[in-house]
């Protein structure tokens, strides 16, 4: 861990424009110890007033510093956005959820083994150095949205649920505040995997806004290598409403399979208006997976996603 200047911001305007914020610290310190992150200045934002969950425009406005555990336990979230509670509770451990924040969770870095090993070339860590994962161990890696420069996945569960809920990210910058749809928030790696979001230098996430809850059933299903305390191999956040025996509305987002929480509107459109049959599910899933490709060690994620999705849809479409 390289030396840094530590400072604490007392209000949001003081924080904005700083190069590196720290809140829960559960991912930043992890990476600083490995020498992967090397900020020379960090700004502690934990004392800022961003810890409330407020009713807002028929939905909720979640302060960026709301902890994962407080968010998961909030009765409004449990009742109205159970997919989000479930996603949060399936992530990390009780201890980590107490420290990890809403804003920080969105900005988690990948768990790619080679990204975390400073001695391995990595385009995300050092653009242009190469991707060690390609040709290496790829169990954790992406089947969708990857590039020849990076095949890492985004590790968050929370963001997958928020993606299905059409969340908006509220950020404060030098030029004021703006709202970014979560679906526009993350970049695909292409040739610059180091640029993970559309945030500008010094912009601070202040809140996440959830629109009014969609109608229908919600669920979050996470598949992983042990019963608890492991990152997703595949996860599905699903919201489905039915009408007259047909699928009326769907929102489905996927974790563990892509560089960002994955959502595919064309795939969703292929479900709407149809009867919930295996044929419907499989035909739509063919669209979802039209560009899917494995690296060898993660090939299994393609059938795993197909099967898990089918089970989730079957459950959600039951009237």
């Amino acid at each position: 861990m390289t030396p840094f200047n530590y400072e604490r911001a007392s209000d949001i305007s003081e924080a904005v424009g700083k190069p590196q914020f720290i809140a829960g610290g559960t991912n930043l310190l992890d990476l600083m110890k490995l020498g992967v992150e090397t900020p020379d200045r960090i700004t502690d934002i934990t004392r800022l007033d961003m810890k409330n969950i407020e009713d807002h425009e028929g939905g909720l406005r979640i302060g960026a510093l709301v902890s994962n555990s407080d968010l998961a336990a909030d009765m409004r979230v449990r009742q109205t956005y159970p997919v989000l509670s479930r996603a949060l509770l399936s992530g990390a451990s009780g201890q980590l959820r107490n420290m990890a924040t809403t804003g920080g969770n969105l900005l988690q870095r990948t768990r790619c083994y080679y990204f975390q090993d400073k001695s391995s070339p990595c385009n995300k860590r050092e653009p242009g150095s190469g991707c060690s994962a390609i040709g290496g161990v790829t169990r954790l890696h992406a089947i969708l949205g990857a590039s020849e420069h990076c095949i890492a996945t985004h590790p968050s569960d929370m963001a997958v649920a928020m993606q299905a809920l059409d969340a908006l990210v509220e950020v404060e910058g030098k030029d004021g505040s703006r709202r970014i749809a979560l679906s526009d928030f993350y970049r695909l790696p292409e040739d610059r995997p180091d640029r993970e979001t559309v945030l500008e230098y010094g912009e601070l996430i202040t809140a996440v806004v959830l629109p009014p809850a969609p109608t229908g059933k919600q669920t979050y299903r996470k598949v992983r290598d042990r019963a608890s305390y492991a990152f997703a191999l595949v996860s599905v956040a699903g919201i489905v409403s039915m009408q007259d025996g047909k699928i009326a509305q769907v929102a489905l987002a996927f974790g563990g399979v892509a560089p960002r929480p994955w959502r595919d509107l064309e795939f969703e459109a292929a479900l709407v208006g149809r009867a919930p049959t295996r044929e419907t599910f499989d035909a739509a899933t063919d669209i979802l997976l039209r560009d899917a490709s494995g690296q060898g060690g993660n090939d299994f994620k393609i059938p795993l996603l197909r099967r898990t999705l089918r089970a989730v849809l079957t459950e959600l479409c039951e009237e």
Partner: peptide, 10 residues
Amino acid sequence: AEYHLPVNAD
């Protein structure tokens, strides 16, 4: 995180 010892729930 990635060498998976059994956790309590396993």
